[in-house]
């Protein structure tokens, strides 16, 4: 485990552009071990693109993205393979392999490790599925037979299948009913306590942000506008933050939080 002060993820002066369209400009973001960071921002503010940059799926135009102290692009071959086993990603639309059953989807990362007995793989897969509220009957289904919420849960089970140190969640609770959403938050919290993994999540759900995140980073105007605890972020004067946190939705979710509380750093 990382015990040093070195950040797990270190994004420095990142610029992302697709042709003429600039998504990020001089973006800096640091994520320390054990944090649960919520990335917040309007639609099209480049949250998912930032995740893709960190995962090395896109390459930066300038600046760098470092994971465990090294640029993500520098992990190649066996090192990249080792890296991919240390993280898990929940994609926004699930990204389940449509040709594989639910069971095989969750088992795939475990089987890719090799050397794990199939009996153990089977038990661990069923454990993951049970965690997210699915049973053996569901394990035999194909992704096309699943409802939207179930897809999300299977995708979470797959992201968790290797007990990752770093978990990326793209809109994890979108499409779940409130009860499932709460259960999801509890699940991540409980796993986080034991496994001490680090979470970066993109979400619009204020309940999830309030209950789960230890820190918030707001993405606007192509960079991280403000970061810190929820109280810290809410006092920042910007139209997006006003609209997002202080509207009716904000009152409902965060109503009893004192707005003026000055609390910096991790909460």
């Amino acid at each position: 485990m990382n015990t040093t002060d070195q950040p797990i993820i270190d994004v420095e002066d990142l610029t992302t552009a697709f042709g003429e369209h600039v998504v990020h400009e001089h973006l800096d973001l640091r994520v320390m071990s054990g944090e649960i960071l919520a990335l917040v921002g309007g639609s099209g503010s480049g949250k998912t693109t930032l995740l893709r940059q960190i995962l090395g799926l896109n390459s930066p135009k300038s600046g760098s993205v470092k994971l465990w102290g090294r640029p993500v692009q520098s992990y190649v071959g066996p090192e990249r393979l080792a890296l991919t086993r240390r993280w898990g990603m929940l994609f926004q639309s699930g990204a389940l392999f449509t040709a594989l059953s639910v069971f095989d989807n969750v088992a795939l990362p475990l089987r890719e490790v090799h050397h794990l007995p199939s009996d153990l793989v089977r038990k661990v897969v069923l454990m993951r599925l049970k965690w997210v509220g699915l049973n053996e009957q569901d394990a035999q289904l194909m992704p096309s037979d699943l409802s939207g919420g179930m897809v999300k849960r299977v995708a979470l089970a797959r992201a968790l299948s290797l007990d990752p140190e770093l978990l990326f969640l793209d809109e994890p609770t979108a499409g779940l009913d409130p009860q499932r959403s709460d259960e999801f938050v509890e699940l991540i919290k409980a796993l986080h306590q034991q496994l001490k993994f680090t979470v970066i999540m993109v979400t619009h759900d204020l309940d999830t942000i309030r209950d789960l995140s230890t820190r918030i980073a707001v993405l606007a105007e192509k960079h991280v506008l403000v970061e810190g605890s929820i109280q810290n972020v809410m006092t920042f004067d910007h139209p997006f933050i006003k609209a997002f946190f202080q509207g009716k939705r904000g009152e409902r979710a965060l109503g009893n939080q004192p707005l003026q509380a000055e609390q910096y750093g991790k909460s």
Binding site: R122, K123, L126, M127, R128, K130, W131, N135, E136, A139, Q140, A190, L191, Q193, Q194, L195
Partner: peptide, 19 residues
């Protein structure tokens, strides 16, 4: 305590064996 929590998570994930 953390290990105990994890074991309860493992316990909650057990199911009837053999498909």
């Amino acid at each position: 305590p953390a290990q105990s929590d994890l074991l309860s998570k493992v316990e909650s994930g057990q199911s009837i064996p053999a498909l």
